[in-house]
């Protein structure tokens, strides 16, 4: 791959992201998932965890933001290819010279970045309604954790979007996948509360490590070792997701060219 190709791909990613952003801003379901639902969950958690003291406010801000990120990843990023099928543009997208995965990367990056609005809104809610200004213990490490979180969510989105297209049966379970990840990833409470057999499931989900890194750097500082472990896990899992995603995209294209079943719902 030469520099020109890279530059071309960058341009495609940028415009795909821009189009996804414009389209999402008019989609009430997206706005609900990114803005309304995390705020309601934050409000609920503020009242429920209020007695635990001010330090839990930032825990709730981060946790509710993570719920918004996952909801967006599941329903918006997860549907980023299916959406093209619904609008009849999937065949056109598959037949362009640009790899489908490059277009999907742009869409998913845009989705993840706009989902961060849920964290900002929860932060604002803490100030406006509860009169508390949450502070972040380790701002630099938190920023690095946030960047890795964006990367890991994007890779997770890249994994689930072809899965949903290739296996409509999995997509039919989409509604039932939202809360289990909230639970398994410890967004709002430690996974130590869960039965021990669920812990390996948490470990293979990058949102768990993202939540762990963000909570640790914002309010539950236990030393650099824990944060470094979370970062390493996020990077390793993201690479695995990318490899699996690459295989799935190849299968998707193969199916498009050989079976001609792309538009079958």
């Amino acid at each position: 791959m030469n520099l020109k190709t890279l530059r071309d791909y960058g341009r495609v990613i940028f415009y795909a992201a821009e189009m996804a952003l414009r389209s999402n801003l008019t989609d009430s379901f997206v706005l609900f998932g990114i803005l309304v639902q995390p705020i309601i969950i934050a409000l609920l958690a503020f009242w429920m965890l209020g007695d635990r003291g001010g330090e839990y406010i930032i825990f709730v801000v981060i946790g509710s933001g993570m719920t918004g990120l996952w909801t967006s990843c599941l329903f918006i990023s997860g549907n980023s290819i299916t959406q093209e099928r619904w609008t009849g543009t999937l065949e056109l997208m598959v037949s362009t010279p640009t790899p489908v995965s490059v277009i999907v990367i742009g869409k998913i990056l845009s989705n993840v970045l706009q989902s961060l609005a849920s964290m900002v809104l929860s932060y604002t809610l803490a100030i406006v309604i509860f009169g508390y200004v949450p502070t972040i213990n380790q701002p630099v490490l938190f920023t690095i954790s946030l960047l890795l979180t964006i990367l890991s969510y994007a890779c997770f989105g890249l994994l689930i979007s072809p899965v949903f297209v290739l296996n409509p049966d999995v997509q039919r379970l989409q509604n039932g996948l939202e809360f289990p990840v909230y639970v398994l990833c410890g967004f709002m409470f430690p996974i130590a509360l869960l039965p021990g057999w669920t812990t390996p499931l948490s470990y293979i989900l990058s949102p768990y490590w993202a939540a762990r890194a963000l909570h640790a750097t914002s309010s539950q500082w236990n030393g650099l070792g824990e944060v470094a472990l979370s970062w390493a896990a996020m990077v390793a899992l993201s690479l695995i997701y990318l490899m699996l995603s690459s295989l799935l995209f190849k299968r998707l294209l193969r199916r498009a060219r050989l079976d001609a079943t792309l538009n079958i719902q």
Binding site: L173, G176, V183
Partner: peptide
């Protein structure tokens, strides 16, 4: 709907939601 989707919507989804709020609640109180 297929049975799997019906079960996901009517049984699994509410169960997962209940688990989330019960664990959050017991963590709080």
């Amino acid at each position: 709907l297929r049975p799997a989707q019906y079960l996901a919507t009517m049984i699994w989804g509410p169960l997962a939601s209940m688990l989330f709020f019960v664990f959050l609640g017991t963590y709080a109180t």
